[in-house]
């Protein structure tokens, strides 16, 4: 039962990853691409981490996965900001 829930969560996470990747490829400019990547992929990774935690069935592994997700959130939010800021200072991405 827990395995099934985990697999379902991973599957949902992959859909968000796919959406983020399609957004990166198809959206017209830098800012909307960043938007697609940071929103969709972070949510996808969160779902993936929860799913893997269900499959592992171990509290310690679940806590590690949660911490990893928070780290990636911080890093991806900061790097998206840096890319957008750099583009704005250079007058690109509009």
């Amino acid at each position: 039962m827990l395995d099934a829930v985990g697999l379902a969560l991973i599957g949902t996470g992959l859909v968000f990853f796919a959406a983020g990747s399609i957004g990166l490829l198809r959206l017209p400019d830098l800012h909307s691409r960043l938007h697609a990547l940071t929103k969709a992929d972070n949510l996808g990774l969160g779902l993936l981490a929860v799913g893997v935690a269900f499959l592992a069935g171990d509290l310690l592994i679940a806590v590690k996965l949660l911490l990893l997700w928070l780290l990636v959130l911080a890093a991806s939010a900061a790097s998206a900001h840096l890319i957008a800021r750099h583009a704005r200072l250079r007058g690109q991405g509009r």
Binding site: L71, A74, A75, A78, H81
Partner: peptide, 15 residues
Amino acid sequence: AGPVLNSLIRLLLPL
């Protein structure tokens, strides 16, 4: 660096 990168560095450095 700006404030965002600086706070990220403060978070990541000890880790």
